[in-house]
């Protein structure tokens, strides 16, 4: 890949890869590192992509893999408590509803959260999500169903006491 092609890809997909990583690891600094790792991987990758959709799926797959590595690393486990202030799922007094929703989404397990994000936010099919996350299609369907059920419960438990949320849902 040439530097021009990389720059074009980064303009188009950097934010998308960053959001995926943020969804998985909930930490902006980690998400930025992960996004740069992913595009470094792209720059040094020998293969080619048949379409933009294929490239995007590949980038998000790398982002999921890299997020798993980061969360499992001993360095991350040791340093994480020091970075609590940076955790984006903490309550926010200036929240207009979006932050509360993000906090509730963050309460879902990583696998369910990732499946919902890819399905509803990135509009991938179940087959594509299975390839991105390395899970079977059955597992993806089950994660979507479970994630929806959990999220609905979480939202219902908050909606009565929170005006911003009532407005959105």
């Amino acid at each position: 890949m040439t530097a021009d092609e990389l720059e074009r890809s980064m303009r188009k997909y950097y934010k998308c890869v960053y959001s995926m990583a943020l969804c998985y690891c909930k930490n902006p600094s980690d998400a930025d590192d992960i996004a740069q790792d992913v595009f470094f991987k792209l720059f040094t990758y020998d293969g080619s992509f048949e379409s933009d959709e294929q490239l995007k799926a590949w980038l998000l797959k790398c982002a999921v893999n890299r997020s798993i590595n980061i969360l499992k690393s001993s360095w991350h486990r040791l340093s994480r408590p020091l970075d609590e202030a940076e955790n984006v799922s903490s309550p926010d007094s200036c929240d207009d509803g979006g932050g509360t929703l993000f906090r509730l989404i963050s309460k879902l397990g990583k696998n369910n959260r990732t499946a919902l994000y890819l399905y509803y936010y990135e509009s991938f099919s179940i087959n594509e999500i299975a390839r991105i996350t390395g899970a079977s299609e059955t597992a993806v369907r089950s994660r979507l169903a479970r994630g929806r059920r959990q999220l609905k419960k979480l939202i219902e438990s908050e909606r009565n006491g929170y005006y911003g949320l009532r407005e959105i849902i």
Binding site: S19, G99, Y117, Y120, Y121
Partner: peptide, 13 residues
Amino acid sequence: YGKLFERAFGYIT
């Protein structure tokens, strides 16, 4: 759920 994720991630990013 599409709108819900759009709102959440729009805000947080």
